[in-house]
Structures are given as C-alpha cells and as structure tokens.
C-alpha cells in the first residue's frame, strides 16, 4: 500500500498568479476508504484555493471529528489547521476569526459533526454570520463508526446495514436558510465543475457561507437503496443554475442572452455569474430558495447549485465593529490608549 504520493507532477502544470503550483496546496495521501467522496471535495478545495491564488499560509482550516474532519490533513499542508472537538468546530473557528480577520477560514465538518452533536453550534455560527466557508461533507451516515444512520439520512433510505432509516432527516441547507444564512449552496462531490466555483464564491463571500456537499460513503452508504449513493445522487440531481465564479481582476467575456443569466457582485468585487436558471427560482429570494428545496425533497430529488445569496449583508466583523488588525499585532499604544482617551470616553456618558 502506498503511504506517499509520488512527488512528480505533470511537467506542464501551471503556476498561479503568486507563483505556486497546485502541488503547494496539496496535503498528505488520504487514508480514507478508496472512492470516498470526501477525497473529491479535498481535491476541489485544493483546486479552488490554487485558482484563487490565496497564499497557503493565509488560510486556516478547522474541523471537528469524523471522516470529514480528518480531511484537512489531506489538503493545504502549508496552511494553518485545527482539528478540534466533536461538533465544536464553530466555537474554535469563532475564536480564530475574532483573533485574526485577515485569514481565509475553511471549516470542514460532516453530517454527524454538524447535524447531531454539533447542531447547537451550527445554529449559532449561522446566526452570527461568522466570516468563514463551512463545508459539510454529507454522507448520511457515521462512516468512522461503521455506518450508522446520521441525522441527514432520508426516511426510508437503506444503507449497508439493511435497515431503513426511521426518523425524518435534517436538511442543513434548509435549516441555514431559516436561520438567516446569506450564502447557502448544495453540491455533489462527484461534480467538480459545480463544486469548485461554489467553493471559490464561498471563500469570496463576506460572512458565513454554507456548502452542503453530498459525498457518498463508498463503504457503508453506497447501496442501490441509499439516497446518498453515487448513482442515486447522479440520477436525481438537478441544479438551480450553473454558477461561474469570476475573480475581480478578470474581465467578463462570456456572452449570455439577457434574461437567462444573473450577475451577482460580491463584497470583494468578484462576480458570480449564474446561467441556465431554473424556472421560478431567484437567487436573491430566500423564500424561493426554501420552496425550491422543499419541492425537490418532496419529489426525492437533490437540488444542487447556489441556493441563496445576499452579498450585501454585514458579517460578524461589521456587526461587532471588530478591530481591523489581528490581535497579535496590536501594540501597547493600541491596547492601552491612555488616560486622555479614557477621560474623553467617560465624558461622553456624563
């Protein structure tokens, strides 16, 4: 068994704007089961960060516990990382985001980590609009403990254990919409053409961005009767639109007939270009997104793509008026501005 990926890459491999190869964004060789959807999501994160030309050392990846939460070892080896406590990734991420707003935060969690033990944490991190991308690697089972049903397993879905799921499932995208998230997307590990632009858009989004990624568990939940298998998702997958992410520096050259596309300008000047919009769906209308999800779920379909976006809302930093500088770079003058300023502030309350 190979424990190391060969160090050679394609001799024609490109470098990005800041001089890095995609190899510089890779991690260790995965120890997940062969064929795990999570590995594809890792590959998509690697490619998205490479293409966005983010310096690897300016990224922090934070995870909880589970197969999903192991993946940060398998991407971005040159970035900061914190493999935290089960279901507590949002708390650790909150601390990190508060301490340094300059980094790009990628939170990785699973359906167990987010929809069961971490449900409360998940709800509050959405509410607070913490500046991060929250990627759920959603396989509908607890793969690390031999495949028990998770809280996102659909009623009636039958995994390898052979017993249909009895309890109704939690739709994390729907829940995030209810809780006020401004960037909600769903994707599929087997469709990188869709997933990579969504990750890039999520990274660019100012505030909390949820990407719920269906990621089949090839060992315990890839049966013909499971609704989270490769074949079920492929056969029942539809999308709200095709999203293309255009970084701020590039010129928009695509020509799309008016009415069929929508351009959404992001906080940092980049653009999400949506084409082939589904009928009746409006990316800026929360209700239409909630309806779309419910309708798809009723029909047993898997609605993917960007579900809802509002790029104008303030993130936690604007809401709390946090300091612009990382806490570790604040000096004594900034932390102890002196008696005069204290007097002035006190005077305001007199």
């Amino acid at each position: 068994m190979s424990y190391k990926r060969p160090s050679f890459r394609h001799p024609g491999a490109a470098i990005n704007e800041i001089g890095f190869h995609q190899k510089d964004y890779e991690g260790a060789l995965s120890t997940l089961c062969a064929g795990c959807g999570h590995d594809s999501i890792s590959a998509a994160i690697i490619q998205a960060c490479f293409e966005l030309a983010i310096p690897p050392h300016r990224i922090a990846k934070i995870s909880g516990i589970g197969c999903s939460s192991k993946t940060p070892t398998y991407f971005l080896a040159n970035s900061h990382g914190f493999n935290s406590v089960h279901g507590r990734m949002p708390s650790v991420a909150t601390g990190a985001v508060m301490a340094n707003r300059d980094l790009t935060y990628i939170g990785v969690s699973g359906d167990g980590d987010s929809a069961s033990i971490g449900m409360g944490q998940f709800a509050h991190v959405v509410r607070r609009n913490l500046n991060m991308v929250y990627i759920v690697m959603n396989n509908g089972c607890y793969g690390l403990t031999k495949g028990q049903d998770s809280a996102t397993a659909d009623v009636g879905s039958v995994g390898k254990a052979g017993v249909p799921t009895m309890f109704s499932s939690i739709d994390l995208a729907g829940l995030a919409l209810e809780l006020g998230a401004d960037f909600v997307a769903r994707s599929f590990s087997g469709d990188k053409d869709q997933l990579i632009p969504l990750i890039k858009a999520g990274i660019s989004h100012n505030g909390f961005a949820l990407i719920d990624v269906l990621s089949p568990c090839v060992t315990f939940n890839n049966t013909k009767t499971s609704t989270k298998s490769y074949s079920y998702v492929r056969d029942h997958m539809g999308s709200t639109s095709i999203a293309d992410f255009v970084p701020e520096k590039s010129e928009i050259t695509a020509t799309v007939a008016p009415g069929e596309s929508k351009m959404i300008e992001m906080h940092d000047g980049s653009i999400i270009e949506l084409t082939s919009l589904a009928e009746g769906w409006d990316p800026g209308n929360r209700l239409s997104a909630i309806n779309a999800i419910h309708n798809a779920n009723l029909k047993g379909e898997v609605l993917t793509g960007l579900l809802y976006i509002d790029a104008k809302q303030p993130s936690v930093h604007q809401l709390l008026n946090t300091t612009l500088k990382p806490l570790n770079s604040l000096n004594q003058d900034e932390l102890m501005p002196g008696v005069e300023l204290l007097e002035r502030i006190n005077a305001e309350f007199r």
């Binding site: 050679f8 890459r9 394609h10 995965s30 795990c36 590995d39 594809s40 590990s189 089949p216 492929r234």
Partner: peptide, 15 residues
C-alpha cells in the same frame, strides 16, 4: 466503474 473520481483526484500527473 462507479465514477467516483477517486482516480482523477489521486493521479499525481493528472493523466
């Protein structure tokens, strides 16, 4: 093949 993309992701030389 179940088209899981694992081979695509792992191939060091993107073949």
């Amino acid at each position: 093949c179940i088209e899981c993309d694992a081979c695509v992701d792992i191939c060091p030389t993107s073949c």
